[in-house]
Simulated scan of single mutants.
Amino acid sequence: MAKRFLLYAVLTLGAFVSLFPYLLVVLTAFKTQAQLSTTAPWLPGLPPTTANLAEMLAGDFPRYVLNTVVMTALLTAGQLLFTTFAAYAFARLRFRGRDVLFWLYVATMMVPSAVTMIPLFLIMRELDLVNTWYGLLVPYLLGSPYGIFLMRQFFKTLPAGLEEAARIDGAGPMTILLRVMLPLCRPALGTLAIITVISSWNSFLWPLIITSGDDTRVITVAIATLKSGIGVDYHLMMAGSLIALVPMVAVFIFFQKHIVRSVVLTGLK
């Protein structure tokens, strides 16, 4: 009983530490600017106010939310499409230099993303794609090393007999991929989709560098712009953060089984 009590105490403490920042976001979002200086951060403002949320929703913030939804949907669709084709080629098709090319591509995961930001920006500038949807999406639309690695490892776990039987029946590589392999890859595709949705929704550095107008501004950049040289509107910033947090909480609630499965599958790495 003592060990069990200690275990639950540690788990409770860990859960509190993990949830405390989100609690501060919720509490601060419902405080007025005057209550920020008169109330402790971990205490609610009385009476709570919804003026911060109303002010954010009355401006251009809904447009930024829509931009983020569009960006996340397109990046997720592109990742699932191109990553699946590339992973199938690396896992099942035979061509000269396949393994060398694959491991060279996977090795790029060791390169910090900040290192490639400036070259990517220079390429987008030469192509006149700065502050456009093409510049925002293209560098991350055609797959990622981690996604290709994940899908390739999953393809390699599937029995080769299924593919051979389909080939005997006259099926080509595309038919085998679409009708035989993909229906068996739903767990891996769900894992990749969840990872891509979360990373795309929280993306900040690249959208900050490549976009500057309202037509392409995403929610993370919009929240950062609330900090000016004069001061920080913490109550508005936390209201925007709360709006940005709600979709991710909904994703977790509705897809928690797939998220748990994704944690298991990412152990393939």
Rank of each mutant, 00 (worst) to 15 (best):
R4Q: 13
S113H: 10
V232T: 11
G59A: 02
A224E: 10
A188V: 14
V260S: 04
V180H: 03
G267D: 10
A91E: 01
T220Y: 01
V25C: 01
F121I: 13
L23F: 14
H235Q: 14
Q153D: 12
T216P: 00
V69Q: 06
V264Y: 10
R94L: 00
V264S: 13
M56E: 06
E163N: 15
D214H: 11
K3L: 10
L158Q: 10
R63G: 12
L57F: 11
K227F: 15
L242M: 09
F85C: 13
R98P: 04
P47T: 05
E126V: 03
P187R: 08
F95H: 06
A222F: 04
A15M: 09
L208F: 07
E126F: 07
V246R: 11
L27W: 12
V17G: 02
D60I: 01
W42A: 15
I118H: 06
N52S: 12
L27G: 03
G143D: 00
Q79P: 00
Q35S: 11
A188I: 15
A29R: 05
L162K: 06
T12N: 15
W201I: 08
V17E: 01
R167L: 09
N67V: 09
A91P: 01
W42V: 05
G59E: 05
A58G: 15
E163L: 11
G213D: 14
V218S: 03
R217D: 02
L120A: 12
L162I: 14
F82S: 07
I194F: 08
T38A: 15
R261T: 13
E164K: 11
V26W: 04
G45F: 14
L46G: 00
I230T: 14
V25E: 00
F121G: 12
G59D: 09
T191H: 07
G267H: 15
L184F: 01
L75P: 00
M110S: 11
M71S: 07
I210M: 03
L184M: 15
P173F: 02
L93H: 03
V249G: 04
K227G: 09
M238R: 07
T220D: 05
V115C: 00
Q256A: 07
Y8Q: 13
A29H: 12
I168R: 03
A188T: 12
L245A: 09
T266E: 14
I209V: 05
L208D: 04
P112G: 07
L80F: 03
V100F: 12
F255Q: 04
L13H: 00
L242I: 05
L57C: 12
G161Q: 14
R98Y: 06
L7A: 10
A224K: 13
Y140H: 02
N202K: 12
R179S: 14
E126Q: 15
F154N: 06
L178H: 15
G231R: 10
D214G: 07
L141Y: 09
A87K: 07
A89Y: 01
L268M: 15
M248S: 07
L80A: 10
A160I: 09
V130S: 08
G231N: 14
G161C: 02
L141M: 14
N131A: 09
G97V: 02
A54T: 10
R179A: 12
W133I: 05
G213Y: 05
L150C: 05
D215C: 00
L158G: 06
L226Y: 05
I210R: 05
N52K: 05
L158V: 08
G213F: 04
E55T: 11
S228D: 13
S144Y: 02
I223Y: 03
R4C: 01
I230C: 00
D60V: 06
G59V: 02
L268E: 07
A107F: 14
M248L: 10
